[in-house]
């Protein structure tokens, strides 16, 4: 079995109000070194597959077909070696 990690983040050019509000809230708490935070989503994908390349390709298909809205979101997939 292979564990693939999928990370999804809003694209830079897309206004993400949630990120803005959480950043401001932290700054209001006194964290004045904070420039900004990025809020995203992590999805763990467990595959019955041995080949790492195939596992990544398979996961990318899931992203393009359902998991990611590529108009407004960027994503990356990588293998979690620790399992």
């Amino acid at each position: 079995m292979i564990k693939v990690v999928l990370e999804i983040f809003p694209k830079e050019e897309v206004l993400d109000p949630e990120t803005k509000i959480v950043t401001k809230s932290l700054q209001d708490l006194g964290f004045d070194k904070l420039k900004e935070i990025k809020l995203g989503k992590q999805i763990l994908i467990y595959l019955n597959e041995q080949d790492k390349e195939k596992a990544l390709e398979y996961s990318k298909q899931m992203c393009e077909k359902l998991l990611v809205n590529t108009i407004i979101q960027d994503y990356k997939v990588y293998i979690d070696e620790e399992k």
Binding site: V14, L15, E18
Partner: peptide
């Protein structure tokens, strides 16, 4: 076409 995202004022 296009997409719909969370309301600006949350």
């Amino acid at each position: 076409p296009g997409t719909l995202i969370t309301n600006k004022n949350l």
